[in-house]
Design a protein around this nucleic acid. Structure first.
Lengths: 211, 211
DNA sequence: TTGCTTCTGAACCAACCGATCCATATATTA
DNA sequence: TAATATATGGATCGGTTGGTTCAGAAGCAA
């Protein structure tokens, strides 16, 4: 079922990637239509409008794309098949590696693109805030699951542990953007996981729970 | 020596506070001159430029003001008279309390106001990045000093510990803005300080060092 | 070739951006 | 009162913003 009509004059995938990079680096509002058009193969305004609907619609498309690709680094948080500590470590290390990858702008799209915006774009701000809340909930769920499994002691401060891990996770965005090298971020993550291990239940308790 | 000439028709202090709140909440670029003028007592454009020089000059003035007031919460990091761990704890808890204070916008001015901006304002971005680096250096200095004093074990991973504390510190900005309550942030800080304590040297070693 | 679809370039819109100029108003100092 | 110094209101600058419309060219299937 080949599509009829004149084929698109630009590469859609590449255009979306370029748009993503612009939003990623400069944020939603600071990225102008002309920048987007220029970066997307120099397409015209009408092509832009026909293909994407509006600047905001493009942003939502790009956000989806990000979530399906780079954003997958936090997917382990929502995978109940993983051991909680492994899920957390994978999410943190994966985020650090992704956010310092020179192949694209530094830091995290979800944290940075609407960090500041005008009141008329509050709905976009809350859209990304919701996304961050998902990670926060995922981290907390991991900690709770670890306590339930007996991996962590029953008296573990769930809120405290989940909040540190979330702080480190969202902190990565600013640190990466500021040029903190991946090696330092990894060392920080190792230190943060030390908090987890400090609350680890003795093997005996874990066995007891498993039985 | 009273100043000659027609007196200002608006309260300078209050105007600067209002401008700070606008920048704080919406960021540098997303805050327009008309918003600023309206918030600063409905002053005219000429009054604005006569009093502050330009939007950017106003921003720098406001940034100084912030550093001298709210920003003082991180001053302990640079106070060698404090015990390193106390300095870190005071800075973290003070930041959390300040950033969740409903008397002004949530989060941290230094982290949020230029989180995203156009290329032509890169110098402002780097200005704030320098400020963040100061905190990063301060945290590292605290950790190094603690090792030198014998408070922390000699084999402590200085980079890892400093990075995790910095991550928590800059992470506060996003967490506070997302509405994470102060109680949770405080619990997170307690947990983060657990990393420090896990590297604490036994009292015997500390005494040996002091002798 | 005939339809049909989609893309393209150019022109256009009202609104807003930060910034500047000038004439006027209001205060202190001599 | 005269001289001086500063602040004010209002008009206005050129440029850019995001968003839209339209006539026509370009490609594909039948």
């Amino acid at each position: 079922m080949a599509r009829t009509g004149r084929p698109r004059g630009f590469d859609m995938d590449e255009a979306l990637d370029q748009a993503m990079h612009l939003f990623w680096e400069h944020g939603y509002e600071a990225t102008s239509l002309s920048q987007l058009k220029a970066a997307m193969g120099g397409i015209s305004a009408s092509s832009f409008f026909a293909a994407f609907g509006s600047k905001e619609a493009l942003f939502r498309t790009v956000l989806d794309r990000y979530a399906q690709t780079h954003g997958q680094v936090v997917a382990p948080l929502h995978d109940p098949a993983l051991k909680p500590r492994d899920a957390v470590e994978q999410a943190l290390r994966g985020s650090a590696r992704m956010q310092t990858d020179p192949a694209h702008p530094l830091g995290c799209f979800v944290v940075l693109t609407t960090a500041n915006s005008s009141p008329e774009n509050r709905h976009l701000q809350t859209l990304l805030a919701t996304e961050r809340q998902r990670n926060r909930d995922g981290l907390r769920a991991c900690v709770e699951r670890a306590v339930a499994r007996g991996d962590l002691r029953a008296d573990t401060d769930v809120t405290g542990l989940a909040t540190v891990l979330d702080g480190v996770l969202v902190g990565l965005a600013t640190q990466a953007r500021d040029g903190v090298p991946l090696s330092a971020l990894d060392a920080g993550i190792t230190a943060a996981l030390g908090v987890w291990d400090a609350h680890a239940a003795p093997a005996a308790a874990r066995k007891r729970k498993a039985a």
